[in-house]
């Protein structure tokens, strides 16, 4: 029941983000003006360069473990949790075109379960730290204005390493880490709140392939345009 309620919550968050998009107001930038000039000239080989920007994004939210999981049959009175509170940190380079590239890390709970074996309490907890190279693109770039949804929505995909952490409490505690290749895909909506700051909502799919850990996350993020040149 609680799972369904939280799924509903994530849809509400998504709808909220979309409604923010409709209300968004932001004057055009000089950069956009220049881009439009480039379009009018029907050339994409504008000899001017930049500006280039380093953008730091930090956020947190809710995660849901979204693939099969296994609880050993020996465990009785099992209590299972698929939810977690992920956090993420992303550093991106925004060059003078649509494609952006950067690195992402963070931390997310995958799942946990509790139970008993012959009267002995057990607890297993699995989490992951992604270390990913990510590519991102706003849906709109040469068209639209800062008010348009397409300019504010971006899709992001990444690949790299997941450091998967496992903790077992049963007749002692065992904490281990295992690396796994994996990927990530996300869609975000960014809303400007100042010259250098934006807030964003992002829906994201983490998949650590080798260990078959996958989570769907919804995050609220603060986006900081840290440096520009």
């Amino acid at each position: 029941m609680i799972y369904r309620r939280l799924q509903t919550t994530s849809w509400v968050v998504l709808l909220l983000l979309l409604s923010l998009a409709v209300q968004a107001q932001r004057p055009s930038s000089a950069r956009r003006q220049r881009r439009l000039q480039a379009i009018e000239a029907d050339t994409l080989t504008d000899t001017r360069r930049g500006p280039y920007t380093v953008v730091v994004t930090a956020g947190g939210g809710l995660s849901y473990y979204s693939t099969h999981l296994g609880v050993p049959a020996a465990i009785e009175q099992t209590r299972l949790s698929r939810f977690g509170t992920p956090s993420s940190l992303r550093v991106m380079w925004y060059p003078d075109h649509r494609l952006r590239v950067g690195l992402e890390t963070g931390w997310t709970t995958m799942y946990s379960y509790r139970g008993q074996v012959a009267g002995e309490n057990t607890h297993v907890y699995v989490s992951a730290v992604p270390i990913l190279v990510v590519f991102s693109m706003p849906l709109g770039w040469l068209t639209g204005t800062d008010r348009s949804i397409a300019r504010r929505m971006a899709i992001t995909a990444g690949t790299g390493l997941y450091v998967n952490h496992s903790r077992l409490d049963y007749l002692g505690t065992v904490m281990t880490n295992t690396n796994s290749l994996g990927w990530m895909a996300a869609a975000s909506y960014t809303y400007p709140i100042g010259r250098r700051f934006r807030i964003a909502g992002e829906l994201k799919w983490f998949d650590a392939v080798a260990v078959e850990n996958a989570a769907f996350t919804a995050e609220l993020q603060l986006v900081w345009r840290a440096f520009s040149w």
Binding site: G70, R82, L139, W205
Partner: peptide, 28 residues
């Protein structure tokens, strides 16, 4: 012998991703 409780399958998620792609498409 242990049994694994398959509570959710990744194919469902891929289906959801497909729907997301559709949504993004319509957003255009």
């Amino acid at each position: 012998m242990a049994t694994i409780r398959n509570l959710y399958t990744s194919s469902n998620l891929f289906r959801q991703l497909g729907y997301s792609a559709l949504l993004i498409g319509f957003a255009q």
